[in-house]
Design a protein around this nucleic acid. Sequence first.
DNA 1: AGTTCATATTCTAACATTCGAATATTAAAA
DNA 2: TTTTAATATTCGAATGTTAGAATATGAACT
Lengths: 100, 100
Amino acid sequence: MYRQWSDFFKVLAHPTRLAIIDSLKDGTRCVGDVCEILTVPQPNLSQHLAILRRERIVGFTEDGKKRCYYLENPCLIRTLLDLIGTKLDRKPEKQPACCR
Amino acid sequence: MYRQWSDFFKVLAHPTRLAIIDSLKDGTRCVGDVCEILTVPQPNLSQHLAILRRERIVGFTEDGKKRCYYLENPCLIRTLLDLIGTKLDRKPEKQPACCR
DNA sequence: AGTTCATATTCTAACATTCGAATATTAAAA
DNA sequence: TTTTAATATTCGAATGTTAGAATATGAACT
């Protein structure tokens, strides 16, 4: 079980992948747009997307020759990132209710 | 910021470290006990503890020649692991309230 | 069919992480 | 003060991850 969990965290353990996730937080985006927003070279972005797909963190729909990526569990991911935000950008008032 | 976040996830991205965290979930334990419970060789355990210390996930108190480790943010860690539990051991009724 | 646009894959060198083995530290007991 | 028990550190080989370069795929347009 820890193996499975650590595989999941491994996928989150890269700044570019977190940036990708963040850029999909509020909806669907095609690869080209993410590419521009993050200023990451296209093949590199594609590699990271493949890793995110493998762990089922993102999915995509095809729209002509474009691929529109989205978060598979947007709420869960949002909650997760909020949570570590409270740890790392440690402002006392940001503590989630469960931790007070 | 993504760098800082990914550094945090990197620390969680190892099965042994997750097992250590889990073994501290319900209180304080000294190194020897964790060692036995997890059946990990002592120097290796010590290396992982050092990594967990660096990211402030665990702390310790000294008790004679023993070191008693504990989670620095037990509630936060518990919430975090519960959350990914709901994703990975996917049972519909385990979905946290916020994600239904 | 050939071209173009959007994205994916493969290969590889650089770099990072991991574990075991050996050794070091350090507090207390003898 | 020597010994012992508990834990930590250092080193190195094996393994895993990363980014860039080059190349491939595949859908839509001509």
